[in-house]
Design a protein around this nucleic acid. Structure first.
Lengths: 153, 153
DNA sequence: TGTGAAACTATTCCGTT
DNA sequence: AACGGAATAGTTTCACA
């Protein structure tokens, strides 16, 4: 189990994984070694999965976000496997969820521009059959914390 | 502008931001100093925004993902400001996009369990008026790379 | 562009509570 | 079991060739 200090450390690391242990130790009122041991434990216990760099979408020339809802009439495991493989092969599709309700799948797609979706779309439908594919362009990112909630009010 | 080596470095850093410069240098066939200078440039030019820790959702007791579509009949800037503030105040809402088409907003919500959505829902509707709120539970994360595409086939 | 030394950080060790 | 302090090991950073 983790305590409030651990939670605080995890929140800090979610914000900035480059903070020196020294600084983190100060923020949670611990010695460097105690703090370091906690971080090691949180890592080996699997709370911290990895540390990654966040890149600038505009700089990387992929500023466009689209969401795509998918409905299928074929609910066989064969179809799913096929779909899964197709989705895995397209780097522009960064997230895919199977949902409850009248939408079967939701894709998040990251693209250089809206027109590029057509290429991806064609690549998908050439490999998988769909009953319905509806796409929504993101006009504005109102909120985006890459962080999971660590505390609850 | 960035070249193929830069692109490779960025891809590596997106995968694992803890790699020592030494290792990265080997992977792109560069000297440590040359590689280090590239990384510094990529950072100061804003390609690399920051480095963050990725936490385990299950370990953190928030395994549930929901997507919520929102439609409003009030398109005033006042409503938007109100909505934006409400969304900002809820840590469980990790992403919010304004979309084209018949869905106005799409929320991604991270929760301890499905039941918890009711609490969030009540908190939202107490502050903002909605025309329609539809929620979809994620049954399965089919794909999720926290990475933006760095190269195109 | 590369070398190597200085500066900074992470990590381990050990005695204490 | 977990802490703090001190010693050690490893990386990053940068001046200079």
């Amino acid at each position: 189990m983790i305590d409030d200090r651990d939670r605080k450390l995890l929140a800090l690391l979610q914000e900035d994984a480059e903070l020196p242990v020294n600084d983190m130790a100060e923020r949670v009122a611990l010695s460097v070694s105690a703090c370091w041991r906690r971080i090691r434990r949180l890592t080996s216990d699997g709370y911290i999965l990895r540390r990654v760099a966040i890149l600038d979408r505009r700089k990387m020339q992929v500023p466009t976000t689209m969401y795509v809802t998918i409905r299928t009439s074929d609910h066989s495991s064969n179809w799913l496997e096929n779909f899964r493989a197709a989705v895995a092969d397209v780097p522009e599709i960064v997230e895919t969820y199977r949902l409850t309700g009248n939408i079967d799948y939701l894709l998040k797609v990251i693209l250089p521009d809206v027109e590029h979706w057509d290429i991806i779309y064609k690549r998908l439908v050439s490999r998988v059959n769909f009953f319905d594919v509806s796409s929504y362009i993101s006009m504005e990112e109102v909120k985006s914390t890459g962080q999971i909630p660590t505390n609850f009010v």
